[in-house]
Design a protein around this nucleic acid. Structure first.
Lengths: 207, 207
DNA sequence: CGACTACTCAACAGTGTGTCGACAAACGGA
DNA sequence: TCCGTTTGTCGACACACTGTTGAGTAGTCG
């Protein structure tokens, strides 16, 4: 995902790449991605605009690299989680959701910019789509296992349910992070999301 | 929301405004909003680029006008719905969700473009945010009423729940319409969303 | 029929992107 | 140690699109 050049020459080389990434994350904390020009990134890293193109082929590619590290962090965090659905399903689901919230909150600026860029950039879109799919597949597996052991009732297709819940998390978190419009206070979003996940997976409708 | 000039003169005047809107919706069906230039819109309406600025002050304003009509259609459709939560709550919720799906599906191109533009344009953002808020408030009222009459159990804050469910609908529908990544087949999305709404509002978690 | 309003566009100015070609500086052999 | 290759750097250019200005034309109304 990241284009590294061999470490040599001049003043830095590889450090310049990191400087550009650091500048991008810093500037994203101050203004929107659209309002940051390649000139700004280059200046922040102490190089000229044409030189920027030696390291990245576009502004979007910088964001892609930043998003990649955030997603890797999520993957890492989720993999390290204790996974014990049989003993304490509620707490286990909750911890997973919490991991997402914490990582994306810690990189709020990058997350917001990536959510916007996803809409117009094919690479960002593909990276995000792939991650969402893997999280949805992971959730699907667990829902199926919970149904198999009789802990969760049958209902709509497990994969559809998993996709809808993951998309909900994405959107609710995105609204919380960007502070937009109808949003849930960040302090309560974990409770709200957990509750909906649990009721949708384990609950039934009295009819 | 719409800037009308008095009907007079030349060849059209007011018709040109409509021609621009029609051109925009047509081109949005063929390519992305970013890939449509003001030149393209002007050409489609048979005027020059500077003349475009006589009718709209920017490309975004054209999209705003289109989104406005779509939202008005939703409001109209939802207001016309039979609202009988006491007799048939499930069917009543389902019909509301169905109305959203149908209207936004009928204007898929505009909906997709608006969801993208929302991220960078303050006016589109505000219009969408206001609408989402009113739908969330509407949902909140009903949830509270259902809890008051004992049909729905207590749980997380009704407004938080309403916001999360509305955001889920937005995101799931948006994924369906754009055909993106982890998405729910459009034919099944009504079932999936209804099921989650009902379980979240009326269901309980056994523990 | 003359002034007024609605409308139109050629031409200009500005801003940001991406490329090209010349050049500098380290390194790795012969 | 010198010389070619790789790595890095940037001035200057071409381009695409946005937004503005100012001069004009065509209907319409007193």
């Amino acid at each position: 995902m990241a284009h590294r050049r061999s470490r040599t020459a001049r003043l830095s080389g590889d450090d310049r790449q990191l400087a550009l990434l650091a500048t991008a994350e810093k500037l994203l904390g101050e203004r929107s991605f659209d309002d940051i020009s390649i000139e700004d990134l280059a200046a922040g890293a102490g190089i000229s605009r044409p030189t920027f193109y030696f390291y990245f082929s576009s502004k979007d590619e910088v964001l892609l690299a930043l998003l990649d590290t955030v997603i890797a962090e999520v993957r890492h965090r989720v993999a390290a989680l204790p996974r014990d659905f049989e003993l304490e399903p509620a707490a286990t689901w909750r911890r997973s959701i919490e991991a997402f919230i914490e990582v994306f909150s810690a990189h709020r600026a990058v997350s917001n910019a990536a959510m916007t860029a996803r809409m117009r950039n094919a690479d960002v879109h593909a990276l995000w789509a792939t991650s969402m799919q893997s999280w949805a597949d992971y959730s699907t597996e667990i829902i199926l296992a919970e149904r198999a052991r009789g802990a969760a009732p049958d209902g709509i297709d497990a994969h559809d349910l998993a996709v809808a819940l993951n998309l909900m998390n994405e959107r609710v978190l995105s609204a919380s992070l960007s502070g937009d419009a109808p949003r849930i206070d960040q302090a309560r979003s974990l409770d709200v999301l957990s509750s909906i996940w649990l009721r949708s997976i384990y609950g039934t409708t009295p009819d």
